[in-house]
Amino acid sequence: MHARIRLTAEDKAVNAIVMIVSVLALLATFYPIYYLLIYSLNDPIDAAGGGLYWYPRKFTLENFGYVFKSDQLLHSFLVTVARTLLGTAAGVLFTATAAYALSKERLRFRKAYSIIGLITMYFSGGLIPNYLLYQKLQLLNTFWVYIIPALFSIYNALLFMAFFRQMPAELEESAKVDGAGDFYIFARIILPLSKPVLATVALFVAVNHWNDWFSSAYYVSNQNLWTMPTIIVRMLSDNSIMDNMKNMSPGMRMDPLSTLQAIKYATLIVTILPITIVYPFIQRYFVQGMMVGAIKA
């Protein structure tokens, strides 16, 4: 925008409305999370008295102490991290490899392959057939049910293809002259030059793995394999689990109900905070990627 000499009354009115709405939007995004944070950093009985809005009144780390004593939560955190790392690496490589082959005009049966892929954008099997399939393949109740069904995504394949197609053909041709095969060219020349699209797709896939609560809740009954979102849902709705957590500590509180509430808030903060802290550093990749995707679409 270039400098304006003076603002009309209309400009000022629009600016004022826009600023008010955006400040409210900022508050609405962060304040709920901030509120949980100060509540969980406050003494539970004092907090239950109300009036806690801006900063912890009686600061304590006790609530977080209870949370970190729970093995289950830590375990589910590790499962979620493992699933996100492995699932993202495997999914991105698998999808990129297929998309590279599909992006080559000279690929025989390319049309047929594309149609096979595109049909799956509009039709899907539905929950029960998927469930029965995983059962047949003995994927249920294993860690692999998180990884294998999420290996390929047609949407991400389209993103990759758009990127691969705009790479200069000379790259491939000169490597061919030197006697390199297709696989070598893909792994050693194309992939290292595709970092922007790799980063973008990796982040999309990672967010899906990180956020997914469904597969853990319905395909896995072994509690040791539950991911964090699933544990959260179970823990927060089932007071007995929380009670156990509280009773493990010798310093029993006078008011079990308000302590319970503060522990719940603290649990939620522990699960939300990592992504909130990491987020400012990774968000620019998301934005780039969404822009690429949006323009292509």
Partner: peptide, 12 residues
């Protein structure tokens, strides 16, 4: 900052 809630699981 408006993208942030998208990165929090619906469970949370």
């Amino acid at each position: 900052s408006s993208y942030l809630p998208n990165f929090i699981s619906f469970a949370m």
